[in-house]
């Protein structure tokens, strides 16, 4: 099932010791269409992780409201509504391997489904599917999650979220701290779930190449606000704004600009990925 997400003037902050923090989300309005893959970019402290938490009811707005499908999260929500939301919105935290706890990988993956009232036999079935979805072998199910490698742990943790069979998947820098190949594989997997299952996906990332390669839309955050929400191509064509936000370009686009500057040659289109760049270069006869 596909699911729309709508944030309406959402303002939120945290309790920190005796004080409340300044607003970490400041009147955020954003609308994510069903089935889209949205990348959230912005500097550390811009409020990206807080935005994800609001989508999941882990951080309640003190003003405004969040709509996930037909469920509304407001300031004072009851536990039942929150649980319903958490079943629909699968949340992969930064360094999700920190949440592994069970004796076996299977038990850990079953944790989510069991909490949402799935029977044990069904949960085990789901676990077998989920572990294959993250590209791991079924034989790992009986192993201890603590005996796995870093990359494997990360995938098991993600499988634990997929096992909840969410309609929306939100991920906070799922590639952070992995080797380049591992990171690429995980992102390709995420992208394929988005396409094949129409899974609405929200991805926080610092890597503009990932944004260019996988996302449909980009939301740029700055100081608790979503300052831009547009298609990838539009966002990366707007050089002045990008400079103002201190957002990098994808490496293909950087290469293109440098090339155009040094050779005086102008390529026909804005190239965001290596493939597009290669095509454009072939077209002008440079390669």
């Amino acid at each position: 099932m596909v699911m729309e997400i709508k944030l309406d003037k959402v303002t939120a902050d945290y309790q920190l010791g005796p004080m409340r923090t300044p607003r970490v989300l400041d009147a955020v309005d954003i609308n994510l269409k069903p089935g889209t893959f949205t990348a959230v970019v912005g500097h550390t402290g811009a409020g990206k992780s807080s935005l994800l938490k609001v989508l999941n009811g882990l951080l309640l707005p003190n003003n405004g409201q969040v709509m996930v499908g037909d469920t509304v999260i407001k300031q004072d929500d009851n536990k039942k509504a929150l649980k319903a939301i958490r079943k629909r919105v699968g949340m992969v935290f930064q360094f999700p391997e920190a949440q592994l706890f069970a004796e076996t990988v299977e038990k850990d993956i079953c944790f989510g489904p069991l909490n949402f009232g799935v029977s044990l036999s069904k949960a085990k079935e789901i676990a077998r599917v989920a572990i294959k979805q993250v590209g791991l072998d079924e034989s790992l199910l009986s192993k201890s999650p603590f005996s796995l490698s870093g990359g494997q742990k990360r995938r098991v943790a993600i499988a634990g979220v997929l096992a909840m069979e969410p309609d929306i998947l939100v991920l906070d820098e799922p590639g952070a701290g992995l080797d380049p190949t591992g990171k690429k594989e995980i992102l390709s997997l995420i992208s394929s779930w988005n396409r094949t299952k129409q899974l609405t996906t929200v991805l926080v990332t610092h890597d503009m190449d990932d944004v260019a390669r996988f996302a449909d839309d980009v939301a740029v955050m700055e100081k608790g606000q979503v300052v831009s929400h547009d298609t990838v191509r539009n966002t990366f064509s707007n050089q002045d704004q990008l400079d103002k936000w201190h957002i990098d370009l994808p490496s293909a686009r950087r290469f293109q600009l440098k090339l155009e500057q040094t050779t005086g040659l102008i390529l026909a289109a804005t190239c965001l990925t290596e493939e597009e760049l290669a095509d454009a270069l072939i077209k002008v006869g440079l390669v």
Binding site: R86, L100, F101, F111, N115
Partner: peptide
Amino acid sequence: VMDAQRARGSEFGEGSLVKQMKTLVPIFLP
């Protein structure tokens, strides 16, 4: 960790004492 387990449907401070103790394991172990 509490947030992460909550996102996976864990509920703290709910139900019988035994049930509440059980929800602590996924927090303390990690």
